[in-house]
Design a protein around this nucleic acid. Sequence first.
DNA 1: TCTTGACTCTTACCCTACGTGATGGATTTC
DNA 2: GAAATCCATCACGTAGGGTAAGAGTCAAGA
Lengths: 256, 256
Amino acid sequence: MKKYTVKEVAGFAGITIRTLHHYDEIGLLVPSERSETNYRYYSENDLLLLQQILFYKDLGIALNEIKDIIQNPGFDVVGALIQHRETILKRQDHLKALLITIDKTLNNLNNKIMKPEELYEGLPKEFANEYRTEAMEIYGEQSVLQSEKELLKMGKADFEQLKSEQKQINEKLFSLMGEDPASESVQTEIQKHYVVIRKFWGASNQVDPQWEAYAGLGDLYVSDERFTSINGNAQPDFAAFLNAAMKQFVMRKKGG
Amino acid sequence: MKKYTVKEVAGFAGITIRTLHHYDEIGLLVPSERSETNYRYYSENDLLLLQQILFYKDLGIALNEIKDIIQNPGFDVVGALIQHRETILKRQDHLKALLITIDKTLNNLNNKIMKPEELYEGLPKEFANEYRTEAMEIYGEQSVLQSEKELLKMGKADFEQLKSEQKQINEKLFSLMGEDPASESVQTEIQKHYVVIRKFWGASNQVDPQWEAYAGLGDLYVSDERFTSINGNAQPDFAAFLNAAMKQFVMRKKGG
DNA sequence: TCTTGACTCTTACCCTACGTGATGGATTTC
DNA sequence: GAAATCCATCACGTAGGGTAAGAGTCAAGA
């Protein structure tokens, strides 16, 4: 019969040596042999036992219960599993309730703090709510609410990164303003713009590419200078350029 | 300003005094006053803080994170909640996976051990599998499998209780055998019988009242003496009585 | 005023399932 | 024969308190 040292056993079981020591300490898995110098040696049978132990452990069962299960032969495994199943169901309910509470709380904080001050931070503050209202009119209320939900789920760091991406792209596009809206360099940048905008819309969840909405956004840029103004100064040329590039982009996508 | 002792605070907050001590120890909630004799006195403001603490604790947030949240004013509560939300989602996935594994394991054990020896414990053992087969023919395989699943979910204690309920009802009905199957006393007991039988069928999940199946069970009682025999002795009279009462019951229900 | 019972304080060990050293001996490898 | 690994046994730490032990404090009744 082969014998295995702690390191070997820990190796194939994917656990630490300390864990084996611990299981020995609490009498859960006592190695079937000790050398003269007190080294632990595990038999193949010990390995099989360990496999069972780890199986039950993966199910989230406590070690002393596992001890009962594997040490007395007539133990009611089925009963234990069923009971454990119920425990898990209760924990699931608990988590579900937690989620609901958190979402409610987030909604509250959202209505009070998040929307004007964080979510639409990039826009002038007095326009934030107005922007939201308009966006709802244009894209539909559900769409905007969904989008905001997705943004909230992203986490703040990601949101910040997204904003900075958008800023960079806008700057790049602004610098390309003289060129043909249909040129490759402009269209490449517009592609990025499209991706970021879709992320803002939380489009990741939707199958529909929403090209119509993107084209509509181009019109919005032209008709409402707030979206393209820089430091409070309107940029009608930039708006027109963006709109043209965006329309070109959508046309190509729909055509191809 | 009123001051509150540990016992009072623990009282309205629904926590133990030890918990307050602990929160004091770790600096989470230090009472704003100590008497000369070192008694803790909590102000109303302390109570408000405690409320917040318990709110976050209910969300499953760790105490040192709560400490961060309530102690530095500019803390990113929204970010923390969103991150915690994700943690919860992960835990949910984990639990879901556990449930699947447990169910698979139960199914395995079920096919090998559970069915003859536990689930149909009340019947003579040599008939258990036969009973199961017949039940499948009568009610449909899916129905029986679903029913067994429900029984497994019930937990062993509940299952035992259900069996004992059924036994009691059967004894009561047996004692009523001389009476009119349509009498109130018999019908009242049959109503209970119906409820228990439906629980055995796992009918809780189904909208359909399944009166047809219940009526069919009455026929089964008459045609197969095993279902009504007592200590191995056939009771054809009892079977006929039961069947009559059950048919009467179903008729009334369908009529009303 | 004294006593009694209820209350409070600190100290300190208990639980899970190990992690993380410290220290010293054993074994293997060059 | 020395260096590198491996093994062993303490022993303390984690989160969130539970559960005493032993001693001091408070309010109320006799």
